[in-house]
Design a protein around this nucleic acid. Structure first.
Lengths: 138, 138
DNA sequence: GTAACTGCAAAATATTTGCATCCTT
DNA sequence: AAGGATGCAAATATTTTGCAGTTAC
């Protein structure tokens, strides 16, 4: 398992370091998205706050993770699916935020529907966020 | 014009103050959404930074404006349509963010399509944000 | 007159930057 | 050995809170 994480870093020309392994593992274990603060809590004193910022930024640049716009405007990150890893983000699934437990869940099977835009608008990327109660809370 | 803005405040049981009139007017003149920093720039020294925070919060609580989740995770606000003003947000139109000029535009005529969620998920509110190039930049 | 609103100061929080040191390759 | 990554300190930026003075009603 740790090896597959290691290979992701290598594939993206990133040095394999403890921090990166640790943080990336968190994403693989997490069902759903993580905020900076989530990562900070789960790593405790082990990783410096600044390193977390820089690691998240690096991962995002490499297309390993992507940010999710949330209803409460907090910053969250989630793993990209395979198709993202080429540099292009095809992050076309719906994100769900539970009003009760607060979790953000990637509904990988629910694709964002296309919409017809007015004349002159050319879409590039679509994001859809649904709030409500999730399958555990309700 | 100033009178219609005034009546909105009254309708929501808010005292009519210069700050509120001014900020609310900005929203009516603006095509699209405003960030806290936009408002700060446009009001200059006239309104205290803190007052802007509190005014935005108040307006949101009253359902006069709503927040928009943006791809870059900055906080933006836009006027609610009539239906929102009852307290329930029926903010069911698509938001468009232009990659070039950075503007956020409410596509009032483009409704957020419904999606079928997996079993157990109960939707409450949907948000859709499309990025690309707008009708002016392209 | 009273409750609500504002501005200022300051606290709390979040994010970014510089630099010396350490680690990966 | 060399370049990149980390940790610490500190600079910036953002948001919240307390309180005294002012304003709307």
């Amino acid at each position: 398992m740790s090896d597959s994480i290691r290979s992701i870093l290598k594939k993206n020309n990133l040095s394999v370091t403890d921090s990166r392994l640790h943080i990336l593992e968190l994403f693989y274990n997490a069902k759903g998205a993580l905020a900076h603060s989530d990562i900070e809590k789960q790593t405790g004193e082990e990783i410096d706050r600044v390193t977390i910022y820089r690691t998240l930024q690096t991962f995002e640049e490499k297309g390993i993770i992507h940010t999710i716009p949330t209803a409460d405007n907090s910053v969250k990150y989630a793993l990209c699916k395979d198709r993202c890893e080429e540099g292009h983000h095809h992050d076309n699934h719906v994100h769900f935020i539970c009003d009760h437990c607060g979790k953000t869940i990637c509904l990988d099977d629910v694709l964002v529907p296309e919409v017809k835009l007015p004349k002159g608008f050319e879409p590039h990327q679509s994001n859809m966020v649904v709030t409500g109660s999730c399958n555990i809370c309700k």
